[in-house]
């Protein structure tokens, strides 16, 4: 699980173009883009997309070996970049730098627990597509339509739970509460490596619960701002 020194310390700038846009749920799309020659990354890393002087980081959902690059983005109505990206058409071009970040999978003899909210699921899709399996995956969603990449996770995760923020009556593979409720109430004691990706409130709450319940656990985080 190494990447070239150059990767994060001196990221290169690349050009890419949209291949297709896929609606994942209302307000959330996956953009598939051309993978520029020479661009390498490790599953879990992100790219920084540019429009003029404005930039935003997006985790890659595609596998490092895939012929294209996929990002998963929630369109924020007053966002600077996401409305434009969400409306992108085939062949629209962008520049990006990368790879960025250190949120990559570390094989160990501990059980890995992936915890995501919303589009924070993207790096875990990349990890599972690159061969990571046998993990517990908790995905915080507002409704069942937001279970992005569910088929992938049903195949590769040992346990895949969609945590519905509301206390709606759950179907199979769902939990009637937040991911943090699951961590506090359902996850059995054990030695874990936790991977947290999502909004900072979730990261904070999950970290404090892990400190209380799972002494000695390792925590790796990726915050979505």
């Amino acid at each position: 699980m190494t990447f070239p020194d150059k990767g994060s310390f001196d990221p290169s700038r690349y050009k890419t173009a949209v291949l297709q846009r896929r609606q994942l749920s209302p307000g959330t799309v996956q953009l598939d883009m051309v993978r520029p020659q020479g661009f390498e990354f490790t599953a879990g890393q992100k790219i920084r997309l540019y429009r003029g002087d404005v930039s935003r980081d997006y985790s890659l959902a595609s596998a490092p070996a895939a012929p294209l690059l996929s990002i998963c983005l929630r369109i924020v109505a007053k966002g600077v970049l996401s409305p434009m990206l969400g409306a992108a058409k085939k062949n629209d071009s962008f520049s990006f730098t990368g790879p960025h970040g250190y949120f990559v999978f570390h094989p160990s003899n501990r059980h890995a627990v992936f915890v995501a909210t919303g589009t924070g699921i993207a790096p875990f899709a990349s990890m599972c597509r690159s061969g990571v399996s046998g993990v517990t995956l908790l995905h915080g969603v507002r409704d069942l339509k937001q279970r992005y990449y569910a088929e992938l996770f049903y195949q590769s995760a040992k346990q895949y739970v969609a945590c519905l923020g509301s206390r709606k009556s759950p179907g199979q593979g769902t939990y009637p509460g937040r991911v943090t409720d699951f961590l506090a109430e359902k996850l059995p004691p054990g030695d874990y490596d936790f991977y947290l990706c999502g909004r900072r409130e979730m990261i904070r709450d999950a970290t404090l619960i892990i400190d209380d319940r799972f002494s000695g656990a390792r925590i790796f985080t990726e915050i979505f701002y």
Binding site: T207, D211, R218, I219
Partner: peptide, 11 residues
């Protein structure tokens, strides 16, 4: 609460 994460993940 006075704890932090190392780069290698330990609290």
């Amino acid at each position: 609460r006075g704890k932090t994460s190392l780069f290698s993940g330990e609290r």
